[in-house]
Nucleic acid binder design. Structure first.
Length: 506
RNA sequence: GGCCCAUUCGUCUAUUGGUUAGGACGUCAGGUUUUCAUCCUGGAAAGAGGGGUUCGAUUCCCCUAUGGGCUGCCA
């Protein structure tokens, strides 16, 4: 039992306010990996404390994205557990119970100020050249339970005047909080403001809810983006005011946009690289934004690329499976400084996985051929893949690199020979046709025979012409190999086809 | 404005007081491929600046600069 209570429990706690982006996935990934490494528990909790910002389908997007990446929770939304419910919107009673405690012991107070009153106060401060903050300095000048008698408070509450509950921060203390990757971070409490814990609609704010939930769900390590560092102090104070011990904190470097305009977010989709793991249907603007999945990335490659953005194993190796990562992940190799995402490296990563997944490429090509009603022998297609796989970065690129093994070209890139004499070109092609015609069907000695029979000084040019006939452009694998693959008959046919094509043009 | 965090090649990063500062992506050159790509070989490319501490600092401390975050009844 004692073992159980000390075991690692971490959570990923997104809010359903829009699609999840790669920063969120990385946070989930690090939580997941740390849990696996420690044989702990990875919990998925939905922080839906703000109904105003609720976006339809975003929860599905989050869940499906995690699933696509292979980041599956052990407990929480989608898989149950004994610490539920795992939706914060269903935990209102719990939060109200605890807020009552805080109100009772003087750690929190009621505030009745309207937006207009706060704005007024802000303006006043601005005129005096100081910044307004709802804190120890100003709270005694505002409308709250600290500045009224018990009777006044009672009657306000009786009348149903809307209020919020604020946390009372006591100035004059120095907080020295440990972050597992950054070391100690120091903060003077006079710089903190009296954050709202309970909104006027009766719902807890994120700060209150997540603090209580983390405690109740026995979270041992809070691993999240470094944009949360400033609120860590509030959270710690909240734990203390309840008499609870804080979990360990780990703040992750942010993934920045390359155009130097801050952190990535679901609100700015116009960055210079895709941000969503899977496609997002933006109902508001009626458009579909493709994700890495739709762009042809393997989830393994996406995860591999992502894990190295802010963490590394300290070895020269770079290709890791999720399983390997579960074994080698460690918090102390997370770096502190923010990172930029490099789309080119992500493409290179995918290529590594293309080569590892020959079978998938094969099946993709089978399908492509079937769709085009092209008959094929499996062995032949396997050979084709072997010859071409190292030319592609994404599976869907395979057809444009292999079509010529199955069909003759239907267009010709003849721009490069337009300067040449057309009659000479045609006679050369006819000559090539005859050279092939006189060759044995097995094409065993094709290389030698071929080169013997074409003029030494024009070899390069003639071979290019041959390539044009067989492929339609100056690309593709070794010519001799192509001729052997498609055979003598087909090669001759293609030469004749190009001759006909050129004749039409003259 | 206030507070907090960070700073090694263009990018991801190694090196946690003594290294010719290493690797990967990208880039450039050469080779292979009679094309293109792959691949191979090689090159260019970094400790933000200034002060300390130390026999010795990329590494520890301070200042400045730059970048980033927070400063919402958002999370």
């Amino acid at each position: 039992m004692s073992n159980h209570s000390s075991s690692v429990r971490v959570r990923f706690a997104p809010s359903p306010t829009g699609p999840i982006h790669l920063g969120g996935i990385r946070t989930a990934l690090y939580n997941y990996l740390f849990a696996k490494k420690c044989k702990g528990t990875f919990i998925l909790r939905i922080e839906d404390t703000d109904p105003n910002r609720f976006v339809e389908h975003s929860e599905t997007h989050i869940l499906e994205s995690l699933k696509w990446c292979g980041i599956l929770p052990d407990e929480g939304v989608g898989c149950g557990g004994s610490s539920g419910p795992y939706y914060q919107s269903q935990r209102g009673n719990i939060y109200r119970f605890y807020i009552h405690q805080l109100l009772q012991n003087g750690h929190a107070y009621y505030a009745f100020d309207t937006d207009q009153e706060i704005d007024q106060k802000k303006k006043e401060c601005q005129d005096r050249g100081i910044m307004f903050s709802y804190n120890h300095r100003f709270r005694m000048e505002l409308t709250n339970s600290l500045t009224m008698t018990k009777q006044q408070l009672h009657s306000k509450l009786q009348e149903g005047v809307p209020y919020v509950v604020r946390f009372k921060i006591r100035p004059g203390k120095i907080l020295n909080i440990r972050d597992l990757v950054r070391g100690n971070i120091v903060m003077h409490t006079e710089h903190l403001d009296d954050k709202i814990l309970l909104k006027s609609n009766g719902m807890a704010t994120y700060h209150l809810a997540s603090t209580i939930d983390d405690y109740l769900m026995r979270i041992t390590h809070v691993i999240r983006g470094s944009e949360w560092i400033p609120s860590m102090f509030l959270h710690v104070l909240l734990y203390r005011s309840f008499g609870w011990i804080s979990p360990h904190f780990v703040h992750l470097p942010l993934i920045l946009r390359k155009d130097g305009k801050g952190k990535i977010s679901k609100r700015n989709l116009d960055g210079n690289f895709p941000v969503f793991p899977i496609q997002w249907k933006d109902l508001e603007h009626n458009k579909v934004i493709p994700g890495y999945r739709e762009l042809g990335y393997f989830p393994e490659s996406f995860v591999n690329m992502l894990v190295l953005l802010g963490w590394n194993p300290g070895k020269k190796k770079e290709i890791f499976s999720l399983h390997e990562l579960e074994d080698m992940f460690s918090l102390n190799r997370i770096k502190k400084s923010n990172v930029f995402f490099d789309i080119k490296k992500s493409i290179w990563f995918n290529k590594q996985y293309v080569c590892k997944n020959k079978q998938k490429v094969l099946f993709f090509l089978y399908e492509k051929l079937t769709k085009r009603s092209i008959l094929y022998k499996k062995n032949y297609v396997v050979k084709v893949i072997d010859l071409t796989i190292d030319r592609i970065y994404f599976i869907h690129e395979i057809w444009s690199h292999t079509f010529y093994f199955f069909v003759s070209p239907h267009t010709y890139d003849i721009s490069w020979l337009e300067k040449k004499d057309k009659h000479f070109i045609i006679s050369t092609l006819k000559n090539l046709y005859h050279v092939l015609f006189h060759m044995e069907d097995s094409l065993e000695n094709i290389k030698g025979e071929f080169y013997n029979k074409i003029k030494e000084d024009k070899k390069r040019y003639i071979m290019q012409m041959m390539r044009l006939a067989l492929i339609g452009c100056l690309k593709g694998i070794d010519l001799i190999t192509i001729i052997r693959m498609i055979g003598k008959e087909e090669s001759m046919k293609r030469i004749q086809k190009l001759i006909d094509h050129l004749n039409e043009k003259i």
